[in-house]
Design a protein around this nucleic acid. Sequence first.
RNA 1: GUGAGUGUAGCUCAGCUGGUUAGAGCACCGGACUGUGGCUCCGGGGGUCAGGGGUUCAAAUCCCCUCACUCACCCCA
Length: 423
Amino acid sequence: MIKAVKGFRDILPQEMPLWRKVEEEARRLFEAFGYSELRIPVLEKTELFKRSLGDTSDIVEKEMYTFRDKGGESVTMRPEATASMARAYLEHALYHSDPVGKYFFFGPMFRHERPQAGRLRQFHQLNVEAFGYVSPSLDTEVISLLDTLYERLGIRHLTTLEINSLGCRECRPRFRESLVEFLERVKDLLCPDCQRRRERNPLRVLDCKEESCQEVLRDAPHISRHLCQDCRQYQKETLAYLDALGVEYLTNPRLVRGLDYYTRTVFELTTTHLGAQNAVAAGGRYDDLLKQIGDKDIPGVGFAVGVERTVLLLEKKGDWTRGTPFHCYLALLGEEAIKEGFKLALALRKKGVRLEMNHQPKSLKAQLRRADKIKAPLAIILGEDELARGTLIVRNMKEGSQEERPLGDLEGLARYIKKEVEF
RNA sequence: GUGAGUGUAGCUCAGCUGGUUAGAGCACCGGACUGUGGCUCCGGGGGUCAGGGGUUCAAAUCCCCUCACUCACCCCA
């Protein structure tokens, strides 16, 4: 048997209601905040991600689905959306029509990692990006949007919002330098993973989970002490806005994001309910990203929500899902009735009645059993006897009562059904 | 890439220290009730016991290899 590719999964009908809930709530909210939907392609030139994420980031180094297309060009299935959205923004020169560009996107991402609970090779993200302004209130808008989304979904209480500032192109290098210096001094005390991180991506040593490392890091340089005056003021204002809005958060000076392009504000929405995976959404400001992939010095801020992980939280909370409910089941007996009934089915369906019928001759018992199984509140029975009388039977499955109605009165029947099942 | 665990029906699982034709519940189909669902009772279909090799008179059961899945490390949404 041919099975799905490892790390790629089907989303079955029974899961769809929760997916729709997330997508619909997100769309409604994003639009309320002034963000417009933008669709980006699955495939991009590999160079885009190398430049934006950083050559030495894990994603670029070992997790991308990269291949040469028939023209010999190296292309990559997007591992994240921010770089693509920035590319689209620049490519279409959208900054000309409006100083601030606010966009959202929903779609699959691809990373070649070993799958485990809450981690897939194809997974979905909802992205929000605001290009054009450097402003604490814009950062706050974006963060409060994420906060509100989870609030609306009823799972904000299962998560924690953590915030930090990574500094800007002025102060971040200085901090990095002093951190590297510090790590050099204590390198023998670090775990083997951190030995590697120390050289590749020193900031990441900060959020190592090893207790021994955290012990050592107690004396490590603090990012907050290295922030320049502007960054310090920026963070202060951002936090003040969040306080004013009543957004609950924790500042975490050890919070570092895995992608290279972040500057100043970074944040993560984490949970303890997803096994080893703790991030359900994350984002931040990236004032140097657009310059790296285009030539425009345009700042941006945004976040990505892990949709699978969000759906898992909804399930954890106990949201239950059910399929599309039927309004009516049509039971037919005898060749003539089947012909006539098929026409009736189409007419009712055109009027919006969610109607199911059988496509194989079956006993009335079997047909009603199915009507019961799919929880249709009404069943219409049309057999040879009714056909001869020019009638049909409408049976109320809950009450067990039924009545005979004229076959020709389509309008009346449709009205009756709508009244009975209230749709 | 590294480590650990698990593979028996569509699903959840039983099958003790090897011993005839491999089981249950749920689900599915049907009958009891020739045209009236749910409840009950009865019956039915569905398995290369993940695959391959080995030990043995005999393997779902013991050993080895492979594969798949899961979880964790790593990384991240």
